[in-house]
Write a protein that binds this DNA or RNA. Structure first.
Length: 276
DNA sequence: CAGGTCTCCTGCTAGC
DNA sequence: TGCTAGCAGGAGACCT
């Protein structure tokens, strides 16, 4: 499940493979991936476009083309494969054909999305990027940014940290890690966090993401950034999918928070505050 | 407006 | 062994 570090890894790998390559043809085998155009418009616009640059915003990958931005969200299982003549997979849904190679968008669960936007539009102020909050790497991602947003939320902190309009880029795995490192219970009501808690979340978000990016992201079940590159961060996970707490050896509990599988240590992560 | 639930989709697994 | 019901999950849609 690609989160910010995985998308960053994909971006870096694609930069090596597809930069300056021109799309000669496109094959769309499953068109629900395409969000804001008809399949025909999508194909016509992308023909003869060159990949000029690749960027990332939160969990979105931004392909900068000659005249357009192609904004991709990999959701659960989206992957890009840079291929030559290898046989196709039934999960290859969109194929960008270059001179003697191609880029294949492969997505087992078909949850991924692609938005094609004109280059003269300010994409950061346009859907879907306009609804993203700051990401942990942004200037101004600090206690003063989070405090007022947290103060008005009655949701569990786990749910809040997954809200991309508040923090862009954290997903299920990394939120569990951040909460563990910060000694905060996932069900703690967001508005009840104290200043110390918020500062912990700020610093631990950056620490966890940095470490994950340096290790190429996490490989859990199906995510891989390209054929033979596998993230190594899963070896460093502290609570997510773990059985014993690395700090106190207590059994890790698995619960559901907002429908998401959530791991935590009941000894290290206690609900401390009462309602204001 | 905030918060809850349903939906998309497929591979995997528990249970019979 | 083979089948099926149930589950996982990011984020938008829809409802209260």
């Amino acid at each position: 499940m690609p989160e910010l570090p995985e998308v960053e890894t994909v971006k870096r790998i694609l930069q090596k493979n597809i930069l300056n390559k021109t799309i000669l043809d496109i094959e769309v085998r499953y068109d629900k991936i395409i969000q804001n155009q008809s399949k025909d418009d999508f194909i016509n616009k992308l023909k003869n476009q060159t990949f000029i640059d690749l960027k990332r915003r939160g969990k979105y990958l931004i392909c900068v083309l000659t005249d357009y931005y192609l904004i991709v969200h990999l959701r659960m299982e989206g992957k890009f494969f840079y291929m030559h003549n290898e046989p196709y997979s039934i999960h290859d849904h969109i194929i960008f054909k270059f001179d003697n190679s191609e880029l294949r968008y492969n997505d087992t669960r078909k949850f991924g999305t692609m938005h094609l936007i004109d280059k003269n539009i300010d994409i950061y102020n346009t859907y879907p990027l306009n609804k993203l909050g700051k990401e942990p790497y942004d200037e101004g991602f600090d206690y003063l940014y989070l405090k007022p947003l947290f103060n008005k939320s009655n949701k569990p902190i786990k749910t809040t940290l997954l809200d991309q309009s508040i923090i862009a880029g954290l997903g299920n795995i990394y939120v569990d890690e951040v909460l563990f490192m910060s000694n905060i219970h996932p069900l703690e009501k967001t508005k009840n966090l104290n200043d110390e808690n918020i500062k912990s979340i700020v610093s631990n978000s950056i620490i966890v993401l940095n470490k994950a990016i340096n290790l190429g992201g996490t490989t859990i079940k199906s995510f891989q950034s390209s054929h033979d590159i596998t993230g190594r961060f899963q070896n460093e996970l502290l609570v997510h999918t773990k059985y014993k707490c690395p700090t106190c050896n207590t059994k890790i509990l698995k619960i559901k928070v907002g429908g998401r599988g959530t791991y935590y240590c009941e000894n290290c992560q206690k609900i401390t505050s009462i309602d204001k």
